[in-house]
Design a protein around this nucleic acid. Structure first.
Length: 493
RNA sequence: CGGGGCGUAGCGCAGUCAGGUAGCGCACUUGAAUGGGGUUCAAGUGGUCGGAGGUUCAAAUCCUCUCGCCCCGACCA
């Protein structure tokens, strides 16, 4: 056993080359994730190990979100993994939605259980149960709780980060005295997700409402932020649900209002998962590998010292350490790569694969001239390297990190705009959806039959009905009937 | 569950049709030269050929059964 583990430490990937995106996008995606050491396949089908580098990225996602939750009055708590099976069955839509993908524990302690336990696919039910105990009066409201947890959904087809049997996420669960307050909370959290995705993830998103068929099982309304991946497919990067009184009624979450009237609460839930890591990979990555936005990158700057002779080694290393120190004092997440078994060129490729936003190279010539060379990951290769004097290095690096962050956002937005089409008739719709792909911005009458007909013809689904709508109404792209709103259609992950 | 493919060294594969000493590349170890964009050369380490049974003087290879994984179709953060 020990021997096996030790041997597994030596796992490497042939030639460290990734499949070009144009050749096979799906393969590129898994190559990048494995070779950049974000994650690896676990021995159980559909499960993955999040490796330290990938987990570091997730930790920054967590921090960026958690800070925003706290700023808006939410507190973290933890609810258990195991849920009585009967709980799931209490809300009819919810059962229907989740029954096929439940993992169920039937035995414990060597005995068959009286009532099977479900491994949470999400925690509305158990949290609803507890809220019923904790909430008595309007004075207990609003109740604003978030939990960071793992959940399990027995998916058919799985992909690293995008769809695994077990995944990590945060799920916020709140209870309010009125519908309006719940709706306000739902929108507030969607706005927080948008701000997080755009500011920290450098991922432009479209905010909108989900169609009936796409909404969360048990929700009254679902909202989402949708992002375009590098292959022009859509990915839901976060969702926020107004649950109405559905769960309050199912779990008896009631409070006495100011008029001494007993009322059901209005609840919400909202979540962002490790899927967001997949979005970061697919929005920003290129054929060289990952490109991480500086605000979420586990390592923002890597320093690569370069030397030939032994006497150069100490001088270069001393200068590299000096750079490390000044960057640390500016709170830059910096790593000095002083490994001796690899040469500079090898390290350049390695750190580009890992998506580190900035690389500082320093060799004997630079030490002599009191300077260093800075390369940015979003513009790889030798052409865009800049020589920077030691004196102004730290502020320059800080400014460059901001610039990379902004450039990544701008580039992603440009890409989305270049691949979004306003279409008014279905033949144009089909041609794009079945051809080049992208987001299709079209009027939709609101009927489910048009929605499914479009899906069958093109595999494109309604990603969301954007909040940002034209003032005038139009005609449904499929049936030609009057339509009040435009929707974003796309093939999706 | 239906269709397709694959299990041979840590990883990627060849060898299977035509049975005859288990190979190649990468990684790893040691040494030397190299060192500003994946460096050469040399010498090494490492394998119950997914598992079980059978045929045969002899099986990675042929036969039977079995287990597992991946990809494509019905669900989803």
């Amino acid at each position: 056993m020990l021997e096996r583990i030790v041997r597994h430490k030596g796992v490497t990937y042939m030639a460290k080359k990734v499949t070009p995106r144009g050749q096979d996008y799906a393969r590129w995606y898994t190559d990048v994730i494995q070779q950049a050491e974000l994650a690896d396949y676990a021995p159980v089908r559909g499960c993955m190990v999040i490796r330290p580098y990938g987990y570091g990225l997730w930790e920054h996602v967590q921090q960026a979100l958690d800070r925003r939750f706290k700023e808006t009055g939410h507190k973290n708590a933890y609810f258990p993994l195991l849920i009585p099976e009967s709980f799931i069955k209490k809300e009819s839509e919810h059962v229907e939605g989740f029954a096929p993908e439940l993992a169920v524990v039937t035995h414990g302690g060597g005995k068959k259980l009286e009532e099977p336990l479900v491994i949470r696919p999400t925690s509305e039910t158990i949290i609803g149960h507890m809220y019923a105990k904790w909430i008595n009066s309007y004075r207990d409201l609003p109740l604003l709780i978030n939990q960071w947890a793992n959940v399990v959904r027995w998916e058919m087809r799985t992909r690293l980060f995008l769809r695994t049997l077990e995944f990590l996420w945060q799920e916020g669960h709140t209870a309010h005295a009125t519908y309006d307050e719940a709706e306000e909370e739902t929108m507030r959290m969607l706005e927080i997700y948008s701000d997080f995705a755009e500011t920290d993830g450098a991922i432009p998103v479209i905010r909108g409402r989900k169609s009936e068929s796409e909404k969360f099982a048990g929700a009254r309304h679902s909202y989402s932020i949708e992002a375009m991946m590098g292959d022009k497919k859509a990915l839901q990067a976060g969702t926020s649900h107004n649950l109405g009184q559905n769960f309050a009624q199912a779990f008896d979450i009631k409070f006495l209002d100011t008029n001494n009237q007993l009322q059901y609460c209005w609840t919400t839930s909202w979540g962002v998962s490790t899927r967001f890591v997949g979005a970061l990979v697919m929005v920003h990555g290129d054929d060289q590998g990952l490109i991480l936005p500086p605000r979420l990158a586990p390592i923002q700057v890597v320093i690569v010292p370069i030397w030939k002779k032994e006497d150069e080694r100490s001088r270069v290393l001393a200068a590299a350490e000096q750079i490390e120190e000044v960057l640390l004092s500016e709170n830059v997440r910096v790593e000095l790569d002083a490994r001796e078994q690899y040469r500079a060129g090898w390290k350049f490729n390695e750190w580009e694969l890992k998506g580190v936003p900035l690389r500082v190279e320093i060799g004997p010539r630079d030490v002599e001239n009191r300077q260093a060379v800075v390369a940015r990951r979003d513009r790889p290769g030798r052409a865009d390297k800049k020589t920077v004097k030691m004196e102004g290095l730290a502020p320059r690096v800080v400014a460059l990190l901001d610039d990379v962050q902004q450039s990544l956002y701008d580039r992603a937005l440009q890409f989305r705009e270049d691949n979004t089409y306003q279409v008014e008739d279905f033949s144009a719709f089909q041609e794009i959806a079945n051809g080049t792909g992208g987001f299709l911005d079209a009027y939709w009458c609101g009927s489910e039959s048009c929605e499914t007909a479009i899906k069958e013809a093109t595999k494109a689904t309604i990603r969301c009905i954007p909040f940002d709508q034209p003032k005038e109404s139009g005609h449904c792209v499929f049936c030609g009937q009057k339509a009040a709103e435009r929707a974003i259609f796309s093939r999706a992950y």
